[in-house]
Amino acid sequence: MAERLLGTVLRHDQEDQTSRPTLGEIGLNHFAPYLMNRVMARWNADIAEELKAHGLTTAKMRALAVLSVSASLTINELSVFAVTEQSTMSRTLEALEEQGYILRRPRAGDLRIRDVSITEEGRAAFDKFWPSMYDSLLKMFDGVTDEEYRAFTAVLHKILVNIRKHDI
């Protein structure tokens, strides 16, 4: 699929909504959501294979990754950061707690809220997997300069601000 982009994709200043380009005019190879889905589907598939060798699932890895750089989070916050449905996160946290990888404690000021934190065992499990995760990152960005990587992540942050539903 080596189509060419004909015209402008982002027509922000168009008052006439009928002048939207068609997907055919944009082409899949220039439609950012399609490309992001392909990239993340490949990343997730590659990571899932590696995770099996470490006795982890994608949801567990995401939770441990987020908790490895956070003091503690609520289940809702962790669900947002780990990009996982809250019901899936609750089941994941039960399994991680059984493995001794996380602790869930009621918050002192509000016993309805549970704060989740990583244990030393959980940190060790994540640290064991981190080299595989980082190597996948390097593979994904092979040939990309540090400057391009910084620009790319800056654009992703702008997009996230535009679409996010949470303040975090």
Rank of each mutant, 00 (worst) to 15 (best):
T74A: 04
R91D: 06
M1R: 12
G122H: 05
A45Q: 12
R123W: 06
G143N: 07
D135A: 14
D16L: 09
K165D: 04
L78Q: 01
A45R: 11
H30T: 02
H12Q: 13
S68A: 08
D142T: 11
M89V: 02
A71Q: 10
S19C: 11
T84E: 05
L93E: 02
D110H: 03
G27W: 03
L93M: 05
M140Q: 15
A95E: 14
G55C: 07
S132F: 06
Q99G: 10
R123G: 08
I26R: 06
K158G: 09
M61I: 02
D46K: 11
E97L: 06
E120F: 05
R62A: 09
H54L: 09
W43F: 12
R123A: 14
K158M: 09
I47M: 11
L138S: 10
Y101E: 02
N29S: 14
A108R: 14
A45F: 00
A41E: 14
A125F: 04
T58C: 07
F126W: 15
H12N: 15
V161F: 10
E97I: 00
L51I: 00
F152T: 11
S132W: 03
R112A: 07
E85F: 05
L56D: 01
E49P: 03
Q14R: 11
T119I: 03
S90D: 08
Y101M: 07
R112F: 05
T84H: 04
E94W: 07
L111G: 13
S90K: 14
E147I: 02
R11Q: 15
M36E: 12
A53H: 11
F81W: 03
K52R: 15
V66A: 09
P33I: 09
L138K: 14
L56C: 03
R112G: 04
T58S: 10
E98A: 14
Q86K: 12
T8W: 04
E77Y: 04
H157Q: 12
D46A: 14
K158Q: 11
R38T: 06
R107L: 03
D16K: 13
T84C: 05
N76A: 02
T74I: 01
L23N: 15
R114T: 10
L35S: 09
I159W: 06
Q17K: 15
R107N: 07
R4E: 10
K60S: 10
E98V: 11
R42P: 05
V66D: 02
S136L: 13
F81K: 01
R11P: 04
Q99P: 08
W130V: 11
K165P: 00
T153P: 01
F141W: 10
E25F: 01
Q99T: 06
R91S: 11
R62P: 07
L93I: 03
S136I: 07
K128R: 15
L156N: 10
R42Q: 14
R11G: 09
K158T: 10
R112Q: 12
A2Y: 12
A32M: 13
P106Q: 13
